[in-house]
Amino acid sequence: MQFLANPTRFLKIANAALPTVWAITIVLFAIGLYGALVTAPADYQQGETVRIMYVHVPAAWMALFVYTVMALASALALIFRHPLADVAAKTAAPIGAVFCFLSLATGSLWGKPMWGAWWVWDARLTSMFVLMLLYIGYMAIWAAIEEPHKAAMVARVVALVGFINIPIVKFSVDWWNSLHQPASVFRMGGPTIAGPMLWPLLVMGLAYTFLFLALHLTAMRAEIAARKIRQIQIAEIGDR
């Protein structure tokens, strides 16, 4: 981590790694989608609809994973004061929010034939919805505070408080939900997932992870460039 803290060195590594990361992403998606759409069987209960799972479940994983990355980066920024960690946290947020939105949207699409409604306040959905709000709040903080250093300090706190909150929210929502309805309403694809369905799911998960890595590196590069531009502008203005 210390090694990466230097933006110049980071940019060098990111520039070198990006083409490879993109290539891996594309290959993984090709394999995963082939498995998901062609080789995997339709579910005996859900029919072809079950294929939404291959888009939906990894998106939900990523939404959680990216928030974890964000919280981790914020913690590093808080402890070691690396400006690059703030950049990492800031740029991860919109990507995570998109994954979160994707999981909500596909869940909703899936829910229509399953429950007969676009939206049901199922425990999982509710938790993901709250996660989406946490993402929005975090991004709003960055947008609301003009001065990047001040924004970074506040955003760290917001990200970490949110992170601590996620399990609590998850627990209370599960409890709230079981209070209202029996827990057996919906179980994803049955208790066990058969091999032909499992491997495309895992490959898709990996593909999403690499997609995130590629997007995140690109976004960080852009953010570093934006900060440089700001610095140059300030410097130019300074000497009138």
Partner: peptide, 27 residues
């Protein structure tokens, strides 16, 4: 500037999510 329609929409969603939690997810 930040805090325009995005924040208002976020607030709107937060209020909406509290509702089913408060009264139960009965469709």
């Amino acid at each position: 500037q930040g805090g325009g329609i995005g924040t208002a929409l976020g607030f709107f969603l937060s209020v909406v999510v509290l509702l089913p939690i408060g009264i139960g997810p009965d469709q």
